[in-house]
Each structure stands twice: as C-alpha cells, then as structure tokens.
Computed example of a mutant assay.
Amino acid sequence: MTQQEPPEPHAQWTVRSTGADVAVFEYGRRDAETTVVLVHGYPDDHRMYEPLIAAIGDRARVVAYDTRGGGDTLLDTPDRTASYALERLAEDFWAVVDSIPDRDGPVHVFAHDWGSVQMWEPLRDSRARVDVASYTSVSGPSIDHLRAVSRRRGLRPWQWPSLIGQLGRSWYIWGFHVPVLGKYVPTAFVKAGPNDPAPAATPENMARGVELYRANIVRRMISGPEPRCEVPTTIVVPRRDRFLSPDLVEDVERWAPDLRIVRVDAKHWWPWTHPRDAAELLLGRA
C-alpha cells in the first residue's frame, strides 16, 4: 500500500440495533492483544479515520463503524428525529462491541466530535467498567456536563464572557434548529473555516447528520442524567478548535475521576490532520 492509498478493511459486516442496521468495518491484525473501536463525528463517516487506521497499522485490531446519519448505516425511519437520540446511539455502540468476532477482553475507544459526544452515554452504563478499557475523547463534550457547566456559569457573572463565547462558537447548532435556515447551515458549517483542514464531507452525511443535533441538544440541555464515567479517560483539547472552547473541560474530573487532559496545538479535526500523534497517544493509553 502506498502512502496515498487508503487502508482497506479485511472484514465488514452489518449489525442490527434498535431501528438501524449499523455498518461495521475491521482493520489491522485480528489476533492483536489490543482492540480499538473508532467512533466518528459530524459530518463524517468511518473513512475519516483512514489516516489514523494507517498509522496504527498492525499494532492493534481496529473496528470502525458508521454512526447514525453517516455512511452506510441505514435507519428504519430516517426522517424521524427520535431515531438519532443518544439512547439509540448508545445501543448502537454496544451492538457493535457485541458483534466483534472472537473478541477477548475490553476494547479501547477513540472518538471525535459527535462520536465523542455520543460516547459519554454508553460510558454511563455499568458494563462499561468491564467492556471498555479506556476512552479517548477529542472535541466532543458531554451534553450533560455542558448543561451543568452552563447553569453554574449563568449564576456567576464573572464567567459570562466564557459562556457567551461558547454560544458564539455554537452558532451552527442553533441554525440547525431553524426550519428555514436548517438546510443551508451544513454547507456553511463546512465552509466556515477554510483554513481548517477537514475530510471531504458528502452531501448525504451533511444533511442526515443534522438530526443528531435536533434530537439531543435542546432536550438534554434542559434536563438529563448526571454525567458519570468510571472508565480511564483521556480528553484531547485542540487549542485552535473553532467550534469548542478549551475551557469546556472545567470540572470534568468531578465525574470522570480517572482523567488525563492533553492539549494539542491543532484545529478541530486533529485525528485526521495528525494521525501519527493520535495513534501514539491512543496506543500509549492502551
């Protein structure tokens, strides 16, 4: 394989989850001691991780899947916003983990953007302590944590500038919820940062993935469970992320006690632009 050629999966399958057929792809060495599960964000699909998969090579067994709204995963009712709820996304993750052939031991999870946002949900499950060895989160905070942080900052006038700043960075989220503007926002989202290298986004992924925001942001910012994560966790904070404020990691250690925070001099799509760094960090944790 030349440097320009994307890695090819040596196996792929579809697993049935609640209301969805989830497309799963396997790379690397099946008999490796380490199994990694990659979870992509918006507006990507599993191919966003091709540079990282190539950087990992045969050092691990790598399983990637297309989350709801992206790639080859098919929903029974794709026009129903509730189909994209965090609860359904969590079920997809466990369905993928349970479908891995001859899996022996827990998996190491690496997630980016909405992949990371959704992963906080299954990590609340008690089985995560058994089936997930570590979690690496890049540019994808817990909505439940954001709810708690926003409420605290709203009561502290000296923190209002930080709150207002994050609201400004999140312009596209509120645009997704406006019916007239919603269809234009995905294109604006991709074009918002011409100097921010990112994987090519298909029109289908851009359009379908909007439902992730509509199904979860307002609902979980109003009410939801307390955040909880007892899995060893690394949060990667790109200092030049145009969508997320670096200080959103404030107080995460309250509910994720085994926590390491790594700040990198990069933009939002750090796993794609710096795949070797991402691979070393991930395998070092594993």
Rank of each mutant, 00 (worst) to 15 (best):
L181W: 02
L181A: 12
R103I: 06
P186V: 01
I100K: 00
R151G: 09
H112T: 07
L181T: 11
R147Y: 03
P194E: 02
M119F: 12
V138F: 05
R129Y: 01
A148V: 11
S126I: 14
A128N: 11
S162P: 15
W160R: 15
E91T: 03
R156W: 01
G105T: 01
V130T: 15
R124S: 03
P78R: 05
R80Q: 07
R124V: 06
P199Q: 11
D102H: 06
R169W: 04
V97S: 07
P197A: 12
L123W: 05
P197Q: 13
A90V: 08
P101F: 02
R151I: 14
V178W: 11
E121D: 13
P106W: 05
P179A: 11
T187Q: 13
P78Y: 08
P197I: 09
T136V: 13
P78C: 10
S99R: 03
V117Q: 08
D104A: 06
S150A: 14
P106C: 01
F110W: 14
I173S: 13
A90W: 05
G140R: 12
F110C: 14
G182Y: 01
W158D: 10
G140H: 09
P101E: 00
L155T: 11
L155S: 08
P197T: 15
G175K: 00
V109Q: 02
A198R: 15
A95Y: 12
G105S: 02
S170P: 08
W160L: 13
Y135G: 09
S137A: 04
